[in-house]
Amino acid sequence: MICILTLVVFGVLAIFSASHRPLAKEAFECVFLRLTLRKCRTGLDTKVKSSIVGRIMGKSPFAAKITYKYFEVFSWVLVILMVASLAYSVYGGYNYSLYGNCYGPEEINAFCIYNALEGETFTELQTKVSGELEKPTADDDPYLGKDDAKVEIIEFGCYSCPYSRQAQSTVNEIVQKYGNQIKLVFRDFPIDTIHSRASLHAEAANCALEQDKFWEYHKKLFTEHELCTSAEENHLEHIVRLAQETGLNMKQFSSCLKERKYKEEVKTDFNDGIKAGVHGTPTFFINGRTIIGPKPIRAFEKIIDEELSK
């Protein structure tokens, strides 16, 4: 049994290390012989067993004795665990391909190793809410699509968050694809503890909403983010410049921003997000089903299609 394990271990190592290739070859020969009901002639099983027992014996003769005596049993257990782990990985991969997460449609929030494949992650809030969660509502926040659409997508996002920014291209594709079949609501979730100017962005966007140019300004904030500012331009100047480029009434905009007119509105959004269990941006609620992070579009499509077909 140990030959199967060594084949897997040395097989993987052999991809990166030429010195492990002869061992991988030896392990393969051993496994092949065992599968064809012949004895492993290479002595690899003896070598591996003895090496492990020898190392343990240096530390604990008793543990070495147990390992030596029950080595075949341990090998079987490890092989079973390896097969189970492999099966679980395949299952996770299957889910990932369908839902963009490892655990299927209902467990979309949990950590998934495959996310790393596409660099997917999100800005996480350090503190999380405890107690019963509340279903988020659209409130009076801006939306695209149809007000009474069958599928309501509420996005909790932050203009200063690179992951919210990354998700926007997917959001745009969804809006284009589904049009009035959905209602896409944007709610502010500025994580000031990580992004110091996050609330200011959100308040500025609300000032643009006052002039019915929210989505234009929203788009500019995400596409021409602060990294694009010149060295001389300070942050406020950047926000003002984007407002000018959007064609906002600057007097009204400046006054709105200076007075912090939408401070409470942004705070309400944030608190509603906390109550709904949002702990990072972007977080999407699709008829109450959650997607965290900039997932691939297929993850959204899967849920939206399911909700539309209900």
């Binding site: 003896t46 067993k49 003895s50 492990i52 027992v53 020898g54 014996m57 240096g58």
Partner: peptide, 9 residues
């Protein structure tokens, strides 16, 4: 087996 154990221990 004995030789490998001695080497490793």
């Amino acid at each position: 087996e004995v030789a490998i154990i001695l080497d490793n221990s």
